[in-house]
Design a protein around this nucleic acid. Structure first.
Length: 500
RNA sequence: GUGAGUGUAGCUCAGUCGGUAGAGCACCAGGUUGUGGCCCUGGUGGUCGUGGGUUCAAGUCCCAUCACUCACCCCA
């Protein structure tokens, strides 16, 4: 460090964020609530390393996403050996400590030969690895949740970061639709218990989309393109989707019939409309492979959801729901705001081919992921959640700042803390009352206890804490409305507990 | 990866035709002897992102670079 010219920027690394206490406190409230709901459904916590072997991560997400994995290079001697091992297009001279490499080989060597670790890109791949590693120990169906950061080397943007928290809940090893129903009703309960307003859950089936793709006149292998285009409906509208499909070389001649069906999307409690829609859907896809089976599954899933006590007008069958990820194989769902302006709050579905990838056999799985940051953002917007500047209930204002008052304050602190009332001694001991009170108020501390000569005169020496609580005169003020009481400590504690 | 925009005090920003930097908020002190939020006064705080160029003179014009933001792609 040679002076101020060398000052290091205090801005966090690109796409990464600091979370100050006032922001962390409401986030932790949400996390606590999520955990208790997950556990009430019997999901168990799992923790896995932030870094995985690189070969665990690669080949799972598709070429585009694979570029977004943060890779960690081999280190020290191993790095040199790897460079020497990458014979093609590279010459290393240990004597002269020089390295010659063609520009073309460089990118390939750096991205393939040198990394041996990577930061996890999501939590599902780690789950699949754990299931393969501890297969015998883990009783299936395995219900696990994991709330943890994941990393993506994406270019940051509004609501998109390089490090963010995922809250994943999955059931591994059951192909029962009951598992899908349980995941969906869990999602509904989470948003309801978080007091999120104006949301709904859209449900569809990947098999149905496959059949719709065929019914629209496209070959089966264009089904991913079909889903990708449909998935953009909210953003670019029907005409946009049509153009998108044309660009991708898909048949758009039958699209009108599809929209006609899609706009009959209805809540699952609207039984007559729902039955009619499913029946007409079945007619439309008559030739589609496996489509009828998907429709039967949806029918059963909706019945199960009603059994699990689904509220009215929350869960909706939406034939135009696609979900971007191409690993889904069965029912899929997405939680959205009713006005659609806040985008997706979370979603999930069945993915029967993914978890088995380390086990060489297919293991059925279904699950959901909650976007913690987006949920917190929406809850703050809806005034359900507020930034919190303190965990303190009480600050003690010591006006005298002498040995006598210090002993008196100390005794109050000890008793309050033991009673579960968080409290602290103001650092402005001995300063003017106005200053100290202002300082407490600015940090949103709800109560102050004012200790001056009058109060200390009342202090009772040589008595136990219980006697002290019952007899010591305490001046306590509620800052929200200025109400001030002079009473004993026990009554003070009751008042504080009642109002916070 | 592609395209656009913005960098001036801790924060939000102004700064005219190129003439050596300003406001509000925040912070500190006081107006106020044991009572906060409002108001008033004063104060601290800036290599104008960084480097180069043009000019008698650059926050201002030009070039480069870095960082951030937004949109696309993709996703949570």
């Amino acid at each position: 460090m040679t002076g101020k010219n060398r000052k290091i920027t205090p801005i966090p690394a690109r796409g990464m964020r600091d979370h100050l206490p006032e922001e962390v406190l409401p986030r932790m409230e949400v996390i606590d609530k999520l955990r208790s709901i997950f556990e009430s459904y019997g999901f168990l916590p799992l923790e896995t390393p932030a870094m995985e072997r690189i070969e665990v991560l690669t080949g799972k997400y598709g070429d585009e996403s694979e570029k977004l994995i943060f890779k960690v290079m081999k280190r020290g001697e191993e790095l040199l050996r790897a460079l020497e091992g990458a014979k093609d297009g590279i010459v290393i001279d240990r004597q002269t400590k020089t390295l010659e490499v063609s520009y073309q080989s460089l990118a390939q060597i750096f991205s393939q030969a040198l990394p041996d670790l990577g930061l996890r890109y999501d939590l599902t791949v780690s789950l699949a690895r754990v299931v393969a590693q501890y297969g015998g120990k883990i009783a299936q169906p395995f219900k696990r949740y994991q709330i943890a950061p994941v990393w993506r080397a994406d270019r940051p943007q509004r609501g998109r970061f390089r490090e963010f928290i995922q809250c994943d809940v999955d059931i591994v090893g059951s192909d029962s639709l009951l598992a899908d129903a349980e995941i969906i009703s869990l999602a509904v309960e989470v948003y309801r218990r978080l007091n999120m307003s104006a949301f709904e859950v859209l449900v569809n089936h990947r098999g149905l989309l496959k059949a719709l793709n065929s019914a629209c006149g496209n070959p089966a292998d264009r089904y991913n393109d079909f889903c990708t285009a449909i998935d953009k409906l909210d953003k670019i509208g029907r005409d946009g989707v049509g153009e998108e499909m044309a660009e991708r070389g898909l048949d758009t001649s039958n699209l009108k019939r599809f929209w006609k069906l899609a706009e009959r999307s209805c809540y699952i409690n609207e039984a007559d409309d729902l039955d009619a829609l499913l029946a007409d859907m079945n007619g439309f896809i008559a030739a589609g492979a496996g489509g009828s089976e998907s429709i039967e599954q949806l029918r059963e899933l909706f019945a199960l959801l009603r059994n699990l006590g689904a509220e009215e007008n929350i869960i909706r069958f939406d034939p135009a729901l696609a979900r971007g990820l191409d690993y889904y194989t069965g029912p899929v769902f997405e939680v959205v705001g009713r006005d659609r302006s806040i985008g997706s709050l979370g979603g999930g579905g069945r993915y029967d081919e993914l978890v088995g990838m380390f086990s060489n056999r297919s293991i059925p799985a279904t699950g959901t992921s909650f976007g913690l940051d987006r949920i917190v953002e929406v809850l703050i917007d809806q005034n359900v959640l507020a930034p919190r500047r303190t965990t303190l209930n009480v600050e003690i204002i010591d006006l005298s700042g002498n040995d006598m008052s210090a002993a008196y304050c100390g005794r109050i602190l000890k008793i309050l803390r033991r009673e579960g009332v968080s409290c602290d001694l103001g650092y402005g001991r001995g300063k003017k009352a106005g200053k100290q009170m202002k300082s407490a108020d600015r940090r949103n501390i709800p109560f102050v206890i004012i200790v001056g000569e009058d109060e200390v005169d009342d202090a009772l020496t040589g008595v136990d804490d219980q006697t002290f609580s019952a007899r010591a005169g305490v001046t306590v003020r509620r800052l929200s409305d200025g109400e001030q009481r002079r009473t004993d400590l026990s009554a003070t504690i009751r008042w504080i507990k009642e109002s916070v």
